[in-house]
Amino acid sequence: MTSMLVKAGIAALVAFTGISVTAPIAAAGGPEFGIYVQHQDRGWRDDRGWRDDRRWRPDRRPRGCAPWLAEAKADRMGLRRTRVVDVSRRTVTVVGFDRGGRDRVVFANVRGCPVIRR
Rank of each mutant, 00 (worst) to 15 (best):
V110L: 08
Q38N: 14
G96A: 08
V87W: 00
F97H: 13
P67Q: 07
R57I: 00
T91C: 00
T17H: 07
R89I: 04
R83Y: 08
W50G: 13
D98Q: 05
I19G: 10
P114H: 01
G112H: 03
R54I: 01
L79E: 02
W44R: 07
P24T: 09
K7L: 08
A26S: 14
A26C: 05
R81I: 05
W56V: 07
A74T: 05
V105S: 01
I10S: 12
P62M: 07
V87L: 03
R54T: 13
A74M: 06
L69F: 04
I25P: 04
A70C: 08
Q38G: 14
I10V: 15
D46E: 02
D98F: 03
A72Q: 12
R89G: 09
G112E: 02
M1E: 09
D47S: 08
P114M: 01
R81Y: 15
V95K: 11
T82A: 05
V6M: 11
M1W: 06
R63E: 15
V14I: 15
M4Q: 11
P62G: 12
A11D: 05
E32D: 14
A12H: 04
A70V: 04
R60W: 05
G9L: 15
D46R: 01
A26H: 09
G18M: 12
T22L: 14
W68R: 12
P58T: 02
G78R: 10
V37I: 13
A66R: 10
A27L: 15
G29L: 08
V106N: 01
M1Q: 08
D103H: 13
P58Y: 05
A26F: 11
L13Y: 06
M77G: 03
P62R: 09
